[in-house]
Design a protein around this nucleic acid. Structure first.
Ligand SMILES: [Zn+2]
Length: 326
DNA sequence: CGGATTTGACCGGCGC
DNA sequence: GCGCCGGTCAAATCCG
């Protein structure tokens, strides 16, 4: 299966080259019409994620965050960097996800955004299982703008399935309206963990995968620290056994790094122009077929000037990776 | 044989 | 009220 994906990606790549007039421009082109601010970035993204999102919602969620900081605390554990077998020479990447790994690989770029948060809601799954009705189970969850924490990751990768260390079961796939690529819906297979995730490729940049996580895992990643699947005998992750949650309510990680691989400055970060809580975290990297992808996600809290941040976090990568040769 | 995918149908919300 | 749309379910299927 993966192979297929790879093939697909290859195809995509071709297509990309063909149809894309400006491959150099990454999402910036799509997402940020103006090289003006970061806010813009956020908006579009969210819009994409939530069809009927609208600024109000955005506000709402932000407000929520601001309103209940403790919630953050509750589920703060971001997708712990599973750190797959990454033979990266980088120094220790270590512990904090916020610590941006050193750009070991050329092909990586990332951006992120986040959204909503919601308190614990009992998911009442009392779906009626009437035999007569074909399927009348409507999940009453919040279909629209529920209040669960959501984190969107933009990853530059050719493969959809970035191994984030968790086990996912696909439960649906739908065509995305404005995109030739479908969106896949996954759910964490761990019992008691209702974390969901959807993965879709950017229509503008086939090489970018947008992964949206919903909820927080109530468990550690199933992947074992000492690798089994990794042929590499070395364990990248030092010790990833935090209690469960970060006890830091305000994890103001400044991890807003973005790599600018080829394009010098189309990087973007998300910004919350509303001046609210900022949240961030996460990063996943995967080495694929010689290609690495990195993702980072962040959210913002205070209205900040992405300017400075960007500057700070951007790691210009002059190195031109060997793109796929084909 | 068990678990993960696939895939078409269905559901609730929203816009018109 | 109807149709569109995103999201989910579940039966069938696939695969190790
Ligand atoms: Zn989970």
């Amino acid at each position: 299966m993966e192979e297929e994906k790879i093939k697909e990606e290859v195809l995509r790549n071709n297509r990309d080259q063909n149809s894309m007039g400006n491959p150099g421009l990454l999402f910036s082109d799509a997402i940020i019409p103006n090289n003006h601010t970061t806010n813009l970035f956020d908006f579009p993204l969210i819009d994409t994620i939530d069809s009927s999102f609208k600024p109000s919602t955005f506000l709402d969620l932000l407000a929520t965050q601001d309103y209940t900081p403790s919630l953050f605390d509750l589920f703060s554990p971001p997708p712990p960097p599973p750190q797959p077998p990454l033979p990266l020479p980088s120094s220790a990447v270590a512990e904090s996800s916020e610590v941006l790994n050193t750009p070991t690989t050329p092909n990586s770029s990332s951006v992120s955004c986040s959204s909503t948060e919601r308190a614990f809601d009992n998911d009442d799954v009392d779906r009626d299982k009437s035999p007569f009705n074909k399927q009348l189970k409507a999940k009453k969850k919040n279909q629209k703008k529920g209040r669960e924490p959501r984190f969107a990751f933009m990853t530059k990768s050719e493969v959809d399935h970035l191994d984030d260390g968790y086990r996912w079961r696909k439960y649906g796939q739908k065509a995305v309206k404005n995109s030739p690529y479908p969106r896949s819906y996954y759910r964490c297979t761990t019992a008691g963990c209702g974390v969901k995730k959807r993965v879709e490729r950017s229509s503008d940049d086939p090489s970018i995968v947008v992964t949206t996580y919903e909820g927080q895992h109530t468990h550690q990643s199933p992947i074992m620290p000492r690798g089994a699947l990794s042929s590499t005998a070395f364990t990248p992750s030092p010790q990833q056994q935090p209690p469960l949650v970060f006890s830091q309510p305000q994890q103001l990680y400044r991890n807003q790094f973005t790599y600018a691989p080829a394009p010098p400055a189309d990087v973007v970060t998300c910004g919350g122009g509303f001046g609210h809580v900022f949240h961030s975290f996460g990063e996943e990297r995967r080495l694929i077929d010689g290609r690495t992808t990195t993702t980072t996600s962040t959210t913002t809290t205070d209205s900040f000037q992405d300017h400075g941040l960007l500057q700070d976090m951007i790691v210009p990568f002059p190195e031109e990776k060997e793109k796929k040769v084909n």
